[in-house]
Design a protein around this nucleic acid. Structure first.
Lengths: 167, 167
DNA sequence: TATTGTTATACTCTATAACTATA
DNA sequence: TATAGTTATAGAGTATAACAATA
């Protein structure tokens, strides 16, 4: 996994698809496979940067979301919807983050069913430092040109809209 | 997670980044976050199509790789390198696939350290049917235009090369 | 000694179903 | 009845370290 392969395995897969009568879909197959692989590479970089902070990407995303919320607090179901993850994933993430003192739970003042998640001062400080680290070490050297970034945002934005992520 | 959000959460995150002094990296942050989310959507679709076949995407990828190998067999370490996954992941996948009779292990004829993975007739048949299903139900209706597919292949290809995936 | 693969272990994230509490 | 969240349980992928067998 460390040594580069002599050939692009995804380009080879595309050739195999074409050789076996699937020319029509060989290109989209290659594009989708490339997205899967790129996500793996990026997630490994992100988790590497976050490791010293003791949080995973999923937990960092929750901290970052809270840090931008008015009052630094959000209902569980709101966080679940905005992060587009299962409610039990939020419960799990909040459990861990609360266990290390980065967030606290409280009951919604007017709806007793709703649990609010709130950043502690430590959580807010860590979110700020982790964001700075990610920005400098990952996003500022993404490996994409400005034009490529614009293309990705446009292409994947319309894909996500068509997939029902947002209106 | 079913109802579309009124606004694009990634576009909102980008605005938050810009408002907090990270304008320089707001766009690449949005592009990378979009890649992460797109991968989730695609993986859910793929796993949904593969579910009736009783295999996950990771295990399907191994079957597909073997089906294109000369003789339908590959050493474990070769499969690990080509799929770009950890050797223990291959061991795990082969364990499961062997357990349901889709692959068999054998010792390399000239190097006793090496284990060969080989498709059974059942494994080859299932790989063919699963590939057809994925091609028709996912890749043929990816949601990307031809031009977008070409852009993704080009942009993500150079990214993967720069990341050290291949020479 | 170096390489290949397995085993044991652990930790992610994810998802379903059953359950409690509140509206 | 419907909603919000938790709990229990299960399964997926990933990774490290220790180990056995072979080169």
């Amino acid at each position: 996994m460390a040594t580069p392969l002599p050939r692009d395995p995804i380009a080879d897969a595309r050739l195999n698809w074409e050789r076996h009568g699937w020319s029509e879909v060989a290109a989209p197959m290659a594009a989708i496979t490339a997205i899967m692989r790129t996500q793996q590479i990026l997630l490994a970089r992100i988790d590497g940067v976050l490791k010293p902070f003791g949080v995973t990407f999923a937990r960092y995303e929750l901290l970052a979301l809270l840090s931008f919320a008015h009052g630094g607090a959000l209902p569980m179901n709101k966080a679940s919807a905005l992060l587009q993850v299962h409610p039990t994933s939020v419960t799990n993430a909040v459990d861990r983050l609360q266990g290390v003192g980065l967030v606290i739970r409280s009951t919604h003042p007017t709806d007793g069913r709703t649990t609010l998640i709130e950043l502690t001062p430590e959580g807010r400080a860590l979110a700020g430092r982790a964001t700075a680290a990610l920005n400098v070490e990952v996003f500022a050297q993404s490996g994409f040109t400005e034009q490529e970034v614009d293309q990705l945002i446009r292409v994947l934005g319309s894909f996500r809209r068509d997939a029902g992520d947002f209106a």
